[in-house]
Simulated scan of single mutants.
Amino acid sequence: MTGPRNLITDVPGISVGCAEDPHMKSGVTVVLPDEPAVASVAIHGGAPGTREIALLEPEQTVEAVDAIVLAGGSAFGLDAGAGVQGRLAELGRGFQVGPVRVPIVPSAILFDLLNGGNKGWGATAPYRDLGRAALDNTGKDFRLGSYGAGCGATTANLKGGLGSASVVLPNGVTVGAIVAVNALGRATVGDTRHFWAAPFERDGEFGGFGLPSPLPDDAVCVRTKLDGLNAGANTTIAAVATDAKLTKSEAKRLAVMAHDGLAKALWPAHTPLDGDLVFAVSTGQRRLECPLEDMVQIGAAAASTLARAIARGVYHARPAPGDPVPTWQDRFG
Rank of each mutant, 00 (worst) to 15 (best):
I8V: 15
T9A: 06
I14R: 01
G17Y: 11
D21M: 07
M24T: 08
M24A: 06
V28G: 08
T29G: 01
V30M: 02
V31F: 10
P33K: 07
D34M: 02
P36A: 13
V38K: 14
V41K: 12
R51V: 06
R51T: 07
T61P: 00
T61Y: 02
A80Q: 15
L88F: 05
L88M: 05
A89V: 05
A89D: 13
A89C: 07
R93Q: 08
G94M: 03
F95K: 15
G98H: 05
P99Q: 06
V100I: 14
P103W: 11
I104G: 04
V105C: 13
S107K: 14
S107D: 12
L110G: 03
K119G: 05
W121M: 12
A123S: 15
P126A: 13
L130V: 03
G163Y: 11
S164Q: 14
A165S: 15
P170D: 10
V173A: 06
A183P: 01
V189T: 08
W196K: 03
P199W: 06
E201F: 01
I237L: 15
A239T: 10
K245S: 15
S249V: 10
L262G: 10
A269S: 12
H270D: 02
P272E: 11
L273N: 12
R286T: 14
R287T: 07
P291D: 12
L292V: 09
G299V: 06
A300L: 12
A301S: 13
S304F: 06
T305N: 07
I310K: 10
I310R: 10
V314H: 04
R318H: 04
